[in-house]
Design a protein around this nucleic acid. Structure first.
Length: 682
DNA sequence: ATCATGTTCTT
DNA sequence: AGAACATGA
């Protein structure tokens, strides 16, 4: 490459200068134009939520100042189409190369593939790198060369790969700036006036930015890491790494984390420190889960909206806006669940254990569609991460081969005494229960009247009775599961009869294919026929798959040029997909004021939209406004997920695609046996 | 030691 | 729920 070349380094979720392969490549190649493109419309309904945008704003400012101290700056562009913005930057700077780091969510896979094609067509040399994972998904294979379908096997393989993850790169000493004088930055707006107040509180607890991420990493490794194993079950302990938002935005390299942590492991192993070693294994496992979430997303790009086990699409979710709202507001009557939801509401943060508790309650007790819960997490979590959250919710929902059994309900009362034995966590987040003795703190409904009175609690008035009893939930769950199996069986029969062959009439299966969306739309527009004729529009597309990526050609696995890998891995990504197109948006947006619906207004998905009838503004005027002061913060606004772009990936509504091959690869899956049994007895 | 019972973990 | 592990008489 010629010394005078100018390259664009496209920053996305790799907001760091240290161990950033794309940046390093740009610096090596000559002059650098560092670019960040803010195109929230491209993300569909997974446009970042309020707290996430707050983080992004500060992280970008931090990155910009780092780049300035190195000799350049961060060019920011507001866009509705990243690829055209890249082209504009190319034209205005005269750059001849583009470097960026890989992402693995479905939107990025498609967009980045298109970016490569379009820019290459304009004569730009494009190279992309692994900066987010220990190993690229297509390099981690089982003995047959296929993708793993369980986490344990996947992680075991990662830890025993024949070659180590790349060693972290140092930050560049100096960056030669490309000519950006003719390439003005757009001012990016990440928060509106109504959000500023609540965001102000975030700065007290968090410091976005790559060098702060680095400090957080050091603090964790030299501090809480050694006791990680011992402390991990405490609901409100400050003993986690708190790295997840940093990791989400790529402020710290996971390879650096891995390296430093493993060094500690060797140290402690030599010292015979058993607890320390176990702590490291446990912490690395959580890093492994993050890896696995990317792996899963790459191999199953629709996994954030479709159950990986196909039969789950027949589950009759309870579509109840009232339940959903009670859950969001922390008014379910189960103190541990409610405390968690209030904490999430107020801080954008939840201990992993509590995430499991509240999401499990959501799916198993309330039986609300998991995608709603996932979307709410997306909108409210500071570390909202599509891949990780999809993995988490699929795990909880029993839709993974190695996930939890669906028919198991955890009892929040018992979990309460496990994770919060003295009730301190509950008392912190539920002031109305503050005076309740520990004996009753996790099951106030059993407390004697005298105790409640002394604690100033009137159940049903200042604290709710359980919204659903555990026994009732169990019964309803059994019934729902047997209904699910019936539906699955009749669908299977229909397929075998040939009535569902190929791309034929989808009206048989559609009502069950996406109950959550269907019902959601019914809420908004009850009369609507819910068998959309448009769902088969992308039937010719296949998902990116590791298998096919390897078929494409033999690669030396240690090749330092990852471009060829990436090319092959993306070979089957849909080409002609218009990300911005959401076929059923019009229907979904029924009843939303035109000004809000307008695509040009600031992130539409965080405007109050309500959830349908149950939150109709006339019905509950005091609480329906979606925004309400509480604990000094603005209540996160939730909006229903739009019908999704997954239809662009999936040609097959009947689970014949990846999800059923998933099943075929796991005939031994115990869940499946259980559920079969269930459907026969139920 | 053996067999009970209890505890923890499952992505 | 069930395995795998721990504790204890």
């Amino acid at each position: 490459m010629s010394g005078g070349a100018c390259s664009i380094v496209w920053f996305r979720r790799d907001l760091r200068v240290e161990d950033n392969p794309a940046l390093a490549a740009g610096v090596r190649a000559g002059a650098v134009v560092a670019v960040f493109i803010w195109a929230p419309e491209e993300e569909g309904h997974f446009c970042p939520g309020r707290v996430s945008r707050w983080w992004l704003k500060h992280s970008l400012a931090h990155l910009d100042s780092s780049l300035r101290s190195l000799g350049t700056c961060l060019v920011t562009k507001r866009s509705t189409d990243s690829v055209s913005s890249l082209l504009e930057v190319v034209k205005s700077t005269g750059a001849t190369q583009l470097f960026f780091n890989h992402l693995y969510d479905p939107i990025s896979l498609v967009r980045d593939h298109r970016a490569k094609e379009v820019l290459a067509a304009h004569g730009i040399a494009v190279r992309s790198f692994n900066a987010d994972l220990l190993y690229e998904p297509w390099n981690v294979n089982d003995d047959q060369g296929g993708p793993f379908t369980t986490f344990a096997a996947f992680w075991e393989k990662c830890l025993s790969m024949p070659y180590d993850p790349e060693a972290p790169l140092l930050p560049p000493k100096r960056i030669i700036s490309g000519n950006v004088s003719t390439c003005p930055s757009d001012r990016l707006v990440f928060e509106d006036e109504s959000e500023k107040g609540s965001n102000a509180l975030l700065a007290r607890a968090w410091s976005p930015g790559w060098s702060n991420a680095d400090k957080a990493l050091t603090a964790f490794i030299t501090g809480p890491l050694i006791e990680y194993s011992k402390n991990r079950r405490k609901a409100d302990s400050a003993t986690t790494s708190f790295l997840s938002p940093h990791l989400h935005f790529g402020e710290v390299s996971v390879r650096k984390v891995f390296n430093l942590v493993r060094n500690k492991q060797f140290l402690w192993a030599n010292e015979g420190n058993k607890a320390g070693e176990e702590s490291v294994n446990l912490f690395l496992k959580s890093i492994g889960l993050r890896e696995y979430s990317r792996y899963l997303s790459f191999n199953h790009p629709y996994s954030h909206e479709r159950p990986l086990l196909g039969h789950l699409k027949f589950f009759p979710w309870v579509v109840d806006g009232g339940y959903f709202k009670a859950w969001r507001q922390g008014r379910t009557g189960y103190p541990l669940v409610d405390a968690g939801m209030r904490e999430l509401w107020a801080t954008g943060w939840l201990h992993d254990r509590i995430r499991v508790v509240v999401s499990s309650f959501f799916v198993k007790v309330l039986q609300l569609p998991w995608r709603w819960g996932m979307k709410y997490f997306w909108d409210t979590l500071l570390d909202a991460d599509l891949e990780s959250d999809a993995l988490g919710w699929q795990y909880i929902s029993g839709t993974l081969p190695d996930g939890r059994e669906f028919d198991r309900i955890d009892n929040p009362q018992f979990e309460g005494y496990k994770f919060d034995p003295h009730g301190e966590y509950v008392r912190r987040w539920l002031p109305e229960l503050a005076r309740l003795p520990t004996d009753w703190i996790h099951h106030p409904w059993n407390a004697p009247e005298s105790v409640l009175q002394a604690a100033g609690i009137e159940l049903g008035s200042n604290y709710p009775l359980p919204i659903v009893g555990i026994d009732a939930a169990k019964a309803r769950l059994q019934e729902a599961l047997s209904r699910m199996w019936q539906q699955e069986a009749s669908s299977r029969a229909a397929i075998e009869n040939g009535t569902e062959e190929g791309l034929g009439d989808s009206s048989e299966s559609a009502p069950f294919a996406f109950p959550q969306d269907t019902q959601m739309e019914e809420n908004l527009e009850p009369a609507r026929n819910n068998a959309p004729a448009t769902t088969r529009r992308y039937e010719d597309q296949m998902v990116p798959s590791m298998t096919s990526s390897l078929v494409g050609g033999e690669q030396e696995e240690t090749s330092s040029d990852l471009r060829t890998f990436a090319e092959h891995s993306r070979a089957e990504v849909p080409r002609n997909v218009n990300i911005n197109q959401e076929p059923r948006r019009d229907t979904l947006n029924q009843g939303i004021p035109q000004t809000v619906r307008n695509n040009n207004t600031f992130p539409q998905f965080n405007f109050p939209m309500g959830v349908g009838n149950a939150e109709d503004s006339t019905a509950e005027s005091s609480t329906s406004s979606s925004r309400r002061e509480r604990d000094g913060g603005v209540v996160p606004v939730w909006s229903p997920p739009a019908p999704s772009y997954s239809e662009q990936f999936i040609g097959d509504e009947n689970g014949i695609g990846a999800s059923s091959s998933y099943l075929q690869r796991h005939p031994q899956s115990h869940q499946i046996v259980n559920w079969r049994h269930l459907s026969q007895t139920g």
